[in-house]
């Protein structure tokens, strides 16, 4: 990351900006962004990845959860500048053009979504959980998923889907 103040002046921008190079869903991206731009807005408005949703914008609802270097983070609380040199995975990475991933297929089979607004966040949280390996009790899974709210209140089915997915050892590409 390098400050691009000369570019700022040249482009007539009124606020400080930074140049960020980051790998998003396997593709390297270099963008000049306002220093205050958060990751959720970067993904949605700069890259058009609207599968990452924005709810409270203060780190409570978890809608904006994505993977940064394999870890589930709330992207509304992270600045784009912090991504430089890093790797981001969003829900769009789970099944780019092909069939649904095993995790997504589990969610469908278990009816673990209703309106679908929180679904990408749960999928990415579960992807990070899976990448950590090991076995998880239902109580531990509930604890790990607690950072994402579902206003349709379909938690039972969501926990069922994640539990079944982890128990079956179904592997996904993201987060490996």
């Amino acid at each position: 990351m390098k400050a691009a103040d000369s570019d700022t002046a040249r482009l007539g921008l009124s606020e400080p900006s930074v140049v960020v190079t980051v790998e998003v869903n396997g593709t390297s991206v270099t963008e000049q962004v306002p220093a205050r731009l958060n990751v959720a807005d970067f993904l949605r408005h700069r890259l058009g990845l609207t599968g990452t949703h924005v709810g409270c914008e203060q780190g409570v609802c978890g809608m904006c959860t994505v993977l940064v270097d394999g870890e589930a983070v709330k992207s509304c609380l992270m600045l784009t500048a912090q991504l430089d040199g890093g790797r981001v995975e969003t829900v769009e990475s789970l099944a780019a053009e092909g069939p649904l991933s095993p995790l997504q297929e589990r969610f469908r089979q278990e009816h673990a979504l209703q309106c679908g607004f929180c679904t990408p966040a749960f999928l990415m949280t579960a992807t990070a959980l899976e990448a950590r390996g090991g076995t998880w009790t239902r109580e531990e899974i509930r604890e790990e998923l607690a950072g994402v709210l579902c206003r349709c209140t379909g938690y039972e089915f969501i926990v069922n889907a994640v539990e079944a997915h982890l128990a079956a050892g179904e592997r996904t590409q993201a987060g490996d």
Binding site: T50, G51, T52, V91, E92, A95, L100, G116
Partner: peptide, 12 residues
């Protein structure tokens, strides 16, 4: 609708 919602391709 599940397929598009699971891919993050829904439109809110």
């Amino acid at each position: 609708e599940d397929d598009r919602l699971l891919r993050g391709a829904g439109q809110f």
